[in-house]
Amino acid sequence: MAKITLGRYVPYDSFIHRMDPRNKIFCLIALMVAVFISYSTWELTFIVGGLLALFVIVLLIVSHISFKQLFGSLKPLWFMIIILLVINCLIPPRGESPIAFSIGSFNVYWNSIFQSLKIILRLVLMISLSMILTATTKPLDLTYALEWYLTPLKIIKFPAHEVAMTISIALRFIPTILTEVERIMKAQSSRGVDFKHGKISTKMKAIISLIIPLFISAFQRSEELADAMEARGYDPKQKRTRYHKLSFHILDIFAFLLCSGLLGATIIMSHYDFTFFTPSFLPWFVVSTLFIVIYCLLVGIIESRVVS
């Protein structure tokens, strides 16, 4: 259980934890789009990428996510990164590009290396961002936020509440099922099953001995849950009230402005083809840097107040 830390909600009390989940989802999307915008020159790509990375690092620190945990969740990516690098180097880049180095008669271009670096940076940022979201938001709050976003679709008879309920039940049962997996694995290990070593055929058998009991208990659980919900008069068509109301605070508005500002700045930079050293870029650069600095300071002040 302790091994699965990726994106698990960790109950700290930070500004990001207290943010409105609807706002958090918006900010996440805005930042992700900002991360994925491309620019005409490599300098701009990496300067903006670096700034965003800096921002994400601040967010990571504020939301108490340990870097150890983050690197742990990035581990499976190594394989992908290597493949990316190899493929990018094998395919000759479009357009002119200086040669980085040659292996025999085969040339490796700077463009290919930059290209892979860009993709890696984007991937890492994307994963960090989604981790910030899931590690600081209770799964239930997330589904409430999702439901809120889906509400307008009710006009076209989209079952927003049912979908949100289904997702929240699924989320609710992930830890339960993980515990179940652990329990069954232990029970089968006691019967001599080795889940880690052995030939593929014995491993298959081991997996079957895990999956069948797991499915059976999952089906049983879902039936019981459906009965329990009906017994308590659950009707998806009814209007419901909530114990926890989602609410916007001043800092939410600030975060909202910051993230949309960042997104806007990146779009403008990309659209008008700013080269980094032209004077017209400077205001944008100064404004966005100031924004980030003010934000970090503000969050820092609030955090220190909460801690003391």
């Binding site: 329990r183 029970a187 006691s190 019967r191 001599g192 080795d194 079957i208 001995s209 009991p213 208990s217």
Partner: peptide, 20 residues
């Protein structure tokens, strides 16, 4: 470890869940 597992048989709570 296998020797140990053979020596000590462990029946879990609600052990019927392990049948497959």
């Amino acid at each position: 470890l296998r020797d140990l597992r053979k020596k000590v048989g462990l029946v879990f709570q609600f052990s019927e869940n392990q049948l497959f």
